[in-house]
Nucleic acid binder design. Structure first.
Lengths: 207, 207
DNA sequence: CCATTACGCTACGACTCGTAGCGAAACCAC
DNA sequence: GTGGTTTCGCTACGAGTCGTAGCGTAATGG
């Protein structure tokens, strides 16, 4: 997770793991109270009980710190087997929506995504630590549905990968847009309607 | 568009309309060159050839200024009648993707959305000047498709409004996620696949 | 014991912020 | 014209943040 030392030194005083956790927790707390723009690294250091210099030794800046702090929120996502594709989708989308509803995820995630449009390394960091890690949910749900016979098999691996990417963009994008732009809750009713649209499409969703 | 004087005074020296346009154009130019985080109001004022104080008289801050500067980009969206619902969707999504591909839209739009999570007035400003104004495209495309018999009529107005909101969240969210998070182009091939998924759903998209 | 690295603390120049104060300019009503 | 009103450009300012340097101390391994 650290950005400065991908390979920790074998000698010398080791970095405090407790300080690392305290800093990330303090970052999330500051995001809740202050939001992205008013969050300062000096304040985070004070909250975490460490010196500001310690913070700069481990993270290159605000962007990288917040990415790591937010990434931890998404690790709790799971895909419980509910028996049908529709129920699996509804379950995982509701979990995703619950995380996105938290203020530290809202203000932090969108801000770093915005910054990543001018910083390739930051975008790659987000992709690796958040996006790509959760794509497993789509892969697993799709495999399950194919085993059940709910979805046709996709023999071409390239085409299958494109399909998974497309589904991920649609699901994640819709929930994010609903939550942040429309500023309406992605509650059970909305998720039911979304799932029906995703499964049946515009032409079949009304039936 | 101004945030200070919703009702312009009848007396006194009027505000320069040319300065207004110059400021918004300078804001977009600064977004391209510097991005959101390094954009300063002092720099924008210099680029536009106005004093910094003039800028503060018209906009409350960086957030409001960038919202207005970005909103103008989306006014060029149109919905040409291509004969079928699929073709209409592909056309408007491609236009939307083309706008989002521009760096001033990327870095500016996401940043203000992130800020809007902690600022209700800013969120309402975004909703009114960008989101709600483009929802007309969904409404018109839907009406056309219903006239053609491609989509069933929706007698309940409340249900119809929810459907339109859902479609808008899915379309806009997917394009934004594809462009900004996945950082892949929303080109014709992707738009074709997305349109098929939107129309037929997961179960019917493979046929 | 010694080399090495992390840590806490202080201090610093550079920068941006948003505002105040001023005289001049542009408009309207009379 | 003349007076009243508002905007404009300019300068200057205190406040706050940034990211780094320097120093002595603490913790680990050989």
């Amino acid at each position: 997770m650290q950005s400065r030392t991908p390979a920790p030194r074998a000698t010398g005083r080791p970095r405090s793991a407790a300080a690392n956790a305290a800093i990330l927790a303090a970052t999330r707390a500051a995001l809740v109270e202050l939001g992205w723009s008013k969050l300062t690294l000096g304040d985070v250091a004070t909250r975490a009980g460490v010196a500001k210099t310690t913070l700069y030794r481990r993270w290159a800046g605000k962007n990288e710190l917040v990415v790591d702090a937010v990434a931890e929120l998404f690790d709790e996502l799971e895909l419980p087997d509910r028996g049908t594709l529709a129920a699996d989708i509804e379950g995982v989308v509701l979990q995703f929506a619950a995380i996105l509803a938290r203020p530290e995820a809202k203000s932090g995630l969108m801000a770093v995504v915005a910054e990543s449009t001018r910083d390739d390394l930051l975008r790659e960091r987000i992709r690796a630590s958040i996006v790509e890690r959760q794509k497993r949910l789509v892969l697993e749900g799709r495999a399950r549905a194919q085993l059940r016979g709910e979805l046709p098999l996709e023999p071409d691996p390239g085409e299958a990968a494109r399909t998974v990417d497309l589904i991920f963009d649609v699901v994640a994008g819709a929930v994010v847009h609903r939550t942040l732009v429309s500023a309406e809750p992605a509650d059970e009713e909305w998720v039911r309607g979304f799932t029906r649209l995703l499964l049946l499409g515009l032409t079949g969703a009304a039936s």
